[in-house]
Simulated scan of single mutants.
Amino acid sequence: MGLLASVILMARTVTAQKFKWAQVPAAVKAAFAKHFPGVTAKWEKEDANYEAVFHQNGKEMSALFDANSKLSETEVAIPIAALPAAIHQYIQKNHLGKKLKKYHILYYFS
């Protein structure tokens, strides 16, 4: 399984709608419970995908599942101070004057 990690520097523009637990397909709930046992999430629908937003080990996270319950990506919010110096330099050079609110590490699964 290939894994690609990248730092998200700016918020993604995605149309998401809040979903209640009862609206999430059983297979998606089961897949979430398998990957994140004992964790409670708030759910959103992104196009044909289901996104679980939750906290685990004190970190803000999210996981994206397709309609077939396959985990396609996870995100972990990280504090600005935890970013490597090279990332800070890149931001200062390429996003001068912009205030970035959140940083995430994004993992894609194939």
Results as ranks from 00 to 15, higher is better:
residue 39 V to H: 00
residue 5 A to W: 02
residue 67 A to N: 12
residue 24 V to P: 01
residue 68 N to E: 14
residue 38 G to K: 00
residue 78 I to C: 07
residue 13 T to G: 12
residue 6 S to M: 12
residue 42 K to A: 14
residue 49 N to T: 09
residue 76 V to A: 04
residue 75 E to P: 01
residue 93 K to N: 12
residue 94 N to I: 05
residue 60 E to S: 15
residue 76 V to H: 00
residue 89 Q to N: 13
residue 100 L to A: 11
residue 81 A to Q: 06
residue 29 K to R: 15
residue 1 M to E: 06
residue 32 F to A: 10
residue 69 S to R: 02
residue 53 V to D: 03
residue 103 Y to V: 11
residue 74 T to Y: 07
residue 62 S to R: 02
residue 24 V to C: 08
residue 5 A to R: 14
residue 41 A to C: 10
residue 60 E to K: 12
residue 23 Q to Y: 06
residue 61 M to Q: 11
residue 41 A to Q: 00
residue 79 P to L: 08
residue 64 L to M: 14
residue 103 Y to D: 01
residue 62 S to L: 02
residue 77 A to H: 06
residue 56 Q to N: 09
residue 50 Y to D: 06
residue 33 A to L: 06
residue 106 L to E: 05
residue 73 E to D: 03
residue 46 E to I: 15
residue 52 A to Y: 03
residue 30 A to R: 09
residue 71 L to D: 05
residue 101 K to Q: 14
residue 4 L to Y: 06
residue 26 A to K: 09
residue 23 Q to M: 13
residue 32 F to Q: 05
residue 39 V to A: 03
residue 41 A to H: 04
residue 34 K to F: 13
residue 9 L to C: 10
residue 26 A to W: 00
residue 52 A to C: 08
residue 1 M to P: 06
residue 108 Y to S: 14
residue 1 M to H: 11
residue 5 A to Q: 09
residue 53 V to Q: 05
residue 95 H to T: 07
residue 62 S to H: 01
residue 6 S to K: 13
residue 7 V to W: 03
residue 72 S to F: 07
residue 97 G to P: 00
residue 15 T to K: 11
residue 64 L to N: 09
residue 2 G to S: 13
residue 58 G to A: 08
residue 99 K to L: 14
residue 103 Y to H: 14
residue 40 T to H: 07
residue 71 L to P: 07
residue 42 K to N: 12
residue 49 N to I: 00
residue 94 N to T: 10
residue 106 L to M: 11
residue 85 A to L: 11
residue 14 V to F: 08
residue 50 Y to N: 06
residue 74 T to R: 08
residue 44 E to H: 10
residue 57 N to L: 09
residue 9 L to T: 07
residue 67 A to C: 05
residue 18 K to G: 08
residue 109 F to N: 04
residue 108 Y to P: 00
residue 79 P to Q: 08
residue 19 F to W: 01
residue 25 P to W: 03
residue 80 I to M: 04
residue 48 A to Q: 05
residue 87 I to M: 11
